[in-house]
Simulated scan of single mutants.
Amino acid sequence: MPDALDLLRTRRSIPAQFLAEPGPNEAQLETLLTIASRVPDHGKLAPWRFVIFRGPARTAAGERLAALLKARDPAVSEARLAEERARLARAPLVVALISRAAEHVKIPIWEQQLSAGAAAMNLEIAAHAMGFAACWLTEWVAYDAEAAAILGVKPGERIAGLIHVGTPTIPPQDRPRPALADIVTEWTAD
């Protein structure tokens, strides 16, 4: 297992279509979700939750998404419907990270949303530490109320991300990162 700094330096997203079996087993999934939930959470609100898609549930959810598209547009192409049927089946495991941020007397919604983002990132890092790869996506289903409801989102909740997890079939590729000189300033009293 790489040390913590190497782990953080080497984490890369692998596109969902390049994540294959094996995915996490039951014990690994429990560990992933436990680590994902160990994030800053002002007020101990747990302003997020997880919906798991694995096995046949992935394609069953995809069938429902395809049916939604077909109901909205009877002329939708078969290729587009096939894309929807496979949306959650690209990787062995998909974890929908659901933000349930809500008005609170002390904790701003923004802080609750940041906690959900931290949970998603912890999940990605934990998957990398286990030898898997992950890809954090949203796509149209995260922004469409009917599609989100199909995936288990309740009123007042939002999809913060669909985290696809599996064994990478391609090597990770780095992408250009911003130069620190472009993103860092030091505050001075002047």
Rank of each mutant, 00 (worst) to 15 (best):
L45H: 01
I35Y: 07
L97Y: 07
D73E: 11
A134D: 00
L32Q: 01
A118G: 11
D182G: 03
Q112Y: 14
A89E: 12
R87S: 11
G117P: 03
E83N: 08
E84Q: 15
A119E: 04
P74A: 14
I125G: 05
M130N: 05
F132Y: 15
I163N: 00
D6F: 02
I107M: 14
R9H: 10
D144T: 02
P22I: 09
I170Y: 03
A133G: 14
H104I: 04
Q28D: 13
P92R: 13
A61Q: 02
D41G: 11
I14Y: 07
G161K: 13
P172Q: 07
R64N: 08
I183A: 04
H164F: 15
T188M: 05
A60Q: 15
L81V: 03
A129V: 09
A179P: 01
Q17V: 10
G23L: 10
A36V: 04
V95R: 04
T188C: 05
V51D: 02
I14E: 03
A86M: 12
G55I: 02
P56K: 14
P22G: 11
R64A: 14
W48Y: 07
A96R: 07
A89K: 07
Q112P: 06
E103C: 06
F53N: 00
A126I: 08
L45P: 00
R54P: 00
W48G: 00
R80I: 02
P24R: 09
L137E: 12
P56E: 15
Q28L: 12
A79I: 04
R177C: 00
R72V: 01
T59M: 07
L8F: 11
E26F: 07
E103D: 15
A82D: 13
R12N: 08
I109E: 15
S37Y: 08
D174E: 13
R100L: 09
G152V: 11
E84G: 02
F132D: 00
L68H: 05
R80D: 12
A91E: 09
D6M: 08
G55T: 01
A46S: 13
R80F: 06
K154D: 10
W136N: 00
E63N: 15
A145Q: 02
L93V: 15
G131L: 14
A129T: 06
E157R: 10
P47D: 02
L69G: 04
W136K: 02
L19E: 09
I125Y: 12
A96S: 15
I14F: 09
R90W: 08
L8E: 03
L114K: 12
A4K: 04
A66W: 06
G156R: 08
L7D: 01
E146V: 04
A129M: 09
H42V: 01
A91T: 09
A67R: 11
G156T: 01
G166M: 12
D6H: 12
A134Q: 06
